[in-house]
Design a protein around this nucleic acid. Structure first.
Length: 640
RNA sequence: GCCGAUGUGGCUCAGUGGUAGAGCAGCGCACUCGUAAUGCGCAGGUCGCCGGUUCGAAUCCGGCCAUCGGCUCCA
C-alpha cells in the first residue's frame, strides 16, 4: 500500500513509479532521463495536457510530451504563436488579438491591426521574436475568475478576448499565460520558456474572417511554423519548395497539358498533350467498368427547371447552379449527373431480375464556385465526374458497396496512391426522415466493416440526399486529396417514383448509389501531375518516345523508326533539328519523355536503336523490336 | 464574394515620369557533332483593360478584369 504522501505514476512503457505528493512533472521527467528533461515541453496527465510545472497530488498516468509527439508539436507551435503575438504587440501597439492556434504544420495568429501587415513586417516581427527567444522568458500560468478576466481584457481594449470570455461557461475558472510583458487568454499548456524556440519562420499574411464567418470583420492572419532544430525547419521549407516545383499549374504550362484563360475563369482548356492523358485515363476507366458490369450512358448538360425542382437541387443547390432560358422556359445547367441518369432508368420498366443496374457516365457538370476559391485544375467551375449510379434491390446494398470499395482500391493501387477512408453523416440541411438516414448510414458502416477498413467519422458532412464514404488519397508529398465517394440514396428513388417489378408481380422501390472513383477527371489529372512531378509513367505519358538522330545522315533511318513505332500505336516524336545530341537529350529530359532513342551511324549500320531511359540514362543499343516489346509490356502493365 | 499581393514578348524576369530591355523558347545561316545547353544573325510587346493627372505615363491616381496566398485545424 502506498503511503498517503506518495503518488503512483504509470508511464507509457507500462512501468509504475512512486513520487512524493506535490512532485512536478518537470521533476518526473528529470527522474526518467536527462534527454527527456532537455526535450520535455508539456505532459499528458490522465489524457489532459498540462504544463510541466503541474504538480501531482494523486495517482495518475503520465506521458511527457516532446516535439516527437503530435500533442507536443501543438504545444510548441502554440507557444510560438504567443511569442509572435507578443512581438506584434510590441511593434504595433494597440493591435487587437483574436485567436492563435497550432495547425498541422505550424500555427497562425489572427490580429486586428489599424493597417494590414505587409510582407516586410514579417521580417521585423521575426526579429522581435528572436529577442523574446533570447530573453528566455518563462511561460507562467495564472487563473482568474470570469469577472476578473473580463475586467483585465476590457481594460486593455482586447475586444475579441472579451467576446470569447463572454461565451465561456459562467462558473469556469479562466486561465491566462504570461511571458514577460505579454498576457494572453489561453487554456495552455505551454512550453517552459521562450528560449526553447530554436527555428521559427513566418510564412505569409492573409485575410481571415473573425470566426471564419464572412459576415464578421476581416482580420489579418499571420501563418508561421517552428521547429526545435534548424535542420527540421530547412527540411520543411524544402518540402514547400518541392510542392511549388511540382505545382500542376506550372507543369501544365511547361508540358503544354492545359491552360486556363481570362476568357473563362475556372474553365479548363485541354491542349493536345493533356488530352492524351485524359483519354488514357478514360480508356482505363471504361475497360475496368466494363469488366465489372457497368453500362455507359451520356445525359444532356442542360435540362428543364422542373427536373431540378423535383430532385431537390432547386431548393438545396441553387446557389451553385447556372441557369438559362430556352423558348421562354427556364432551364438549368446540370451541377450533378444523377437526375439525368434517373430519367434513363425511368424510361422503361425494370424487373427485379435486371437489378443491379450500373450506369456509368463521364458527365460534364457546372458549378458556380466563388471567384476567390478557383485553383488550377483542383477547383474549377466545370468538370467531368467519372460518375455512376447503381439502382439495386435493398438486399443488394452491402454487396454493391463492397464492389465499389474494391473498384476504388484497384484504381488507386495502379497509381500507387495510399488512401484513407471517411464516413460522413447527416448534415444540417438534409432532405428526408431521420430513420432513413440511420438505415443508409448503417449500411455504409456495415460494408466498411465487412471489408475490414479503418475509417474516420465526419459528423454532418454528408450530401443533402444521403450519407457518404469518402476516399482521401495521399500523394508523394504527404498531402491528401478527396477523390472517390460513395453515396447511398433512398430519397431520389422516392422523389422520382422509381420502381421495379418484384417476384410478386408488384411494384417496389429500388435503392440508389451514387459514386465516383477519380472524382473529377480535371482534379485527378492535377493530382497525378503533382504526384509524378510531370514525369508520367509510360502508359500515361503524352509522348512515350522521342527519336534523336545524331546528324542529318541518319534522318531517313530515324524516320523509319518513328513510322514503325507509330504503326504499333506508340506515341512517338522525331527531333530532326540540326542540333547536337546533348542538346536534344537535355530538351527531351526537360519534357519528361520516358524514352529517347538515339540513332547514329552505328545504329543505322546494325539496325538498332540506342535506348536512353528518362530515369536511368543510357541503356545501350538494342534491336527496335526488342525495345518495342519492352515498352509495350511496361505500358500494358501500367508500370509506375 | 471578402482581405492582401501581383499583372511587361510563348516562358522566366529587369525596367518607378523622358525613344520598351535580357535570358530561354521560335525562325534563318554556318558547323555534321555519340548521351543534359555549338556559334552568329533575325523576328517578336498598343507594358491586363478603361478612364484621369501631366508637355510627356509601363511608371502617379481611380475603376474594372484576371491570377496568386488566405478566409475556424477555434481561448
Amino acid at each position: 500500500m502506498a503511503d498517503i504522501n506518495e503518488v503512483r505514476v504509470s508511464l507509457p512503457d507500462g512501468s509504475v513509479r512512486e513520487y512524493p505528493a506535490g512532485t512536478s512533472l518537470w521533476e518526473v521527467a528529470g527522474s526518467i532521463s536527462p534527454r527527456l528533461t532537455r526535450e520535455a515541453l508539456a505532459a499528458m496527465v490522465d489524457d489532459r495536457a498540462v504544463d510541466l510545472s503541474y504538480t501531482l497530488n494523486r495517482d495518475s498516468s503520465v506521458r511527457i510530451l516532446t516535439f516527437a509527439d503530435e500533442e507536443g508539436r501543438r504545444v510548441y507551435r502554440h507557444s510560438t504563436a504567443h511569442v509572435m503575438a507578443q512581438a506584434v504587440q510590441r511593434l504595433f501597439p494597440g493591435v487587437k488579438l483574436a485567436i492563435g492556434p497550432a495547425i498541422t504544420d505550424g500555427f497562425y495568429y489572427d490580429f486586428d491591426p489599424s493597417e494590414p501587415f505587409t510582407l516586410d513586417d514579417l521580417a521585423a516581427i521575426e526579429n522581435e521574436m528572436e529577442k523574446i527567444v533570447k530573453a528566455d522568458l518563462p511561460f507562467e500560468r495564472y487563473e482568474f475568475s470570469r469577472p476578473e478576466a473580463l475586467a483585465r481584457f476590457k481594460e486593455s481594449g482586447q475586444d475579441y478576448k472579451v467576446e470569447l470570455i463572454k461565451e465561456l461557461p459562467e462558473d469556469e475558472v479562466l486561465s491566462c499565460y504570461r511571458q514577460g510583458d505579454f498576457l494572453d487568454l489561453c487554456t495552455g499548456p505551454h512550453m517552459p520558456s521562450t528560449g526553447r524556440l530554436k527555428a521559427v519562420k513566418l510564412l505569409n499574411v492573409a485575410g481571415a474572417y473573425w470566426r471564419g464567418d464572412e459576415k464578421n470583420r476581416m482580420l489579418q492572419r499571420i501563418y508561421g511554423t517552428s521547429f526545435p532544430k534548424k535542420s527540421m525547419l530547412d527540411e520543411y521549407l524544402f518540402r514547400i519548395a518541392e510542392a511549388k516545383r511540382r505545382d500542376h499549374r506550372k507543369l501544365g504550362t511547361e508540358l503544354d497539358l492545359f491552360s486556363i484563360q481570362d476568357e473563362g475563369p475556372g474553365f479548363v482548356f485541354f491542349h493536345p498533350k493533356g488530352m492524351v492523358l485524359r483519354n488514357e485515363l478514360e480508356k482505363f476507366w471504361r475497360e475496368e467498368h466494363r469488366k465489372r458490369g457497368y453500362q455507359e450512358i451520356r445525359t444532356p448538360i442542360i435540362l428543364n427547371r422542373a427536373l431540378w425542382e423535383q430532385s431537390g437541387h432547386w431548393e438545396h443547390y441553387r446557389d451553385n447552379m447556372y441557369f438559362t432560358k430556352i423558348d421562354g422556359i427556364d432551364y438549368a445547367v446540370k451541377p450533378m449527373n444523377c437526375p439525368g441518369s434517373i430519367l434513363i432508368y425511368k424510361s422503361r420498366l425494370h424487373s427485379y431480375r435486371d437489378l443491379p443496374v450500373r450506369m456509368g457516365e463521364l458527365g460534364l457538370v457546372h458549378r458556380h464556385e466563388l471567384s476567390g476559391v478557383l485553383h488550377g485544375l483542383m477547383r474549377v467551375r466545370c468538370f467531368t465526374q467519372d460518375d455512376a449510379h447503381i439502382f439495386m434491390l435493398p438486399s443488394q446494398i452491402k454487396e454493391e458497396i463492397i464492389g465499389v470499395i474494391d473498384l476504388v482500391d484497384d484504381f488507386y493501387r495502379v497509381f500507387g496512391f495510399p488512401y484513407r477512408v471517411e464516413l460522413s453523416t447527416k448534415p444540417q440541411k438534409a432532405m428526408g426522415a431521420g430513420h432513413i438516414w440511420e438505415l443508409a448510414t448503417g449500411a455504409l458502416q456495415e460494408a466498411l466493416e465487412a471489408r475490414g477498413l479503418d475509417y474516420k467519422v465526419n459528423e454532418g458532412d454528408g450530401a443533402f440526399y444521403g450519407p457518404k464514404i469518402d476516399f482521401h488519397l495521399e500523394d508523394c508529398l504527404g498531402r491528401t486529396w478527396q477523390c472517390g465517394t460513395i453515396q447511398l440514396d433512398f430519397l431520389m428513388p422516392e422523389k422520382f417514383d422509381l420502381n421495379y417489378v418484384g417476384e410478386d408481380g408488384q411494384k417496389h422501390r429500388p435503392v440508389m448509389l451514387h459514386r465516383v472513383v477519380f472524382g473529377s477527371m480535371e482534379r485527378f489529372i492535377g493530382i497525378l501531375t503533382e504526384h509524378f512531378a510531370g514525369a508520367f509513367p509510360a502508359w500515361l505519358a503524352p509522348v512515350q518516345v522521342r527519336v534523336l538522330p545524331i546528324t542529318d545522315r541518319q534522318g531517313e533511318y530515324a524516320r523509319s523508326v518513328v513510322d514503325k513505332l507509330l504503326d504499333r500505336g506508340i506515341r512517338v516524336e522525331l527531333d530532326a533539328r540540326n542540333e547536337k545530341i546533348g542538346y536534344k537529350i537535355r530538351e527531351a529530359q526537360a519534357r519528361k519523355i520516358p524514352y529517347m532513342l538515339v540513332t547514329g551511324d552505328k545504329e543505322v549500320q546494325n539496325g538498332t536503336v540506342a535506348v536512353r531511359r528518362r530515369a536511368q540514362g543510357d541503356l545501350g543499343p538494342m534491336p527496335l523490336d526488342r525495345f518495342e516489346e519492352m515498352l509495350q509490356e511496361e505500358i500494358n502493365k501500367k508500370v509506375c
